[in-house]
């Protein structure tokens, strides 16, 4: 695995000024994950949490405008270096669904989290890519990744500024 983004995946990397065991616990303890995971202003509650190979973490995540259930299905749980899980959206009963606003979207995103000890702390590398997706679903993921970072968000900003003005 390279140390940069590969085609068709979301890649994010950051060094946290803490020991690897502490960073690992933040990823591998259900209550801790619910505390920090999610966009600004969101809150999450653990519905079901069992982080081990074959286990799941199911959370209800909500903001002022939406709420949804998130389901993580764990594959590799290798303390304190490697965590892989399927990141899915689900309904209240745990059935996999697509997130609101997307007609076509991968049902499963494979998340790979690697932790490495660096001089400044612990480097966390996260990769997010479609799993078992059709070509159309993969395309939707890639198009949204790029458009989120570029033109579409920009045009929304312009429109919002216009509306506010």
């Amino acid at each position: 695995m390279t140390d940069r983004a590969e085609a068709g995946e979301l890649f994010i990397q950051r060094v946290f000024a803490h020991r690897i065991e502490r960073v690992w616990d933040a990823w591998a303890t259900p209550g801790a994950v619910a505390t920090w995971l999610g966009p600004k202003g969101s809150t999450s509650h653990v519905v079901e949490g069992d982080i081990r190979p074959g286990g799941v973490l199911r959370m209800r995540m909500e903001t002022a405008t939406w709420s949804m259930f998130t389901l993580f299905r764990y594959r590799d749980v290798v303390r304190p270096h490697l965590l892989t899980y399927e990141h899915c959206f689900c309904d209240a009963a745990g059935n996999l669904i697509r997130p609101v606003f997307f007609e076509i979207w991968p049902l499963k995103l494979l998340t790979t989290v690697t932790l490495e000890t660096m001089s400044a702390g612990t480097q966390v590398t996260l990769r997010w890519r479609p799993l078992d997706a059709t070509p159309e679903e993969e395309q939707a993921f890639v198009e949204n990744l790029s458009s989120m970072q570029g033109g579409l968000a920009g045009s929304f900003d312009q429109l919002a500024a216009y509306l506010a003005g």
Partner: peptide, 22 residues
């Protein structure tokens, strides 16, 4: 717009929040 912002910022926001938590 909220949804787009939150989707776009999901991981950067989460990493910020993880840092604050740590």
């Amino acid at each position: 717009r909220d949804w787009i912002d939150q989707f776009r910022d999901f991981w950067p926001d989460s990493f910020d929040r993880l840092d604050a938590y740590l």
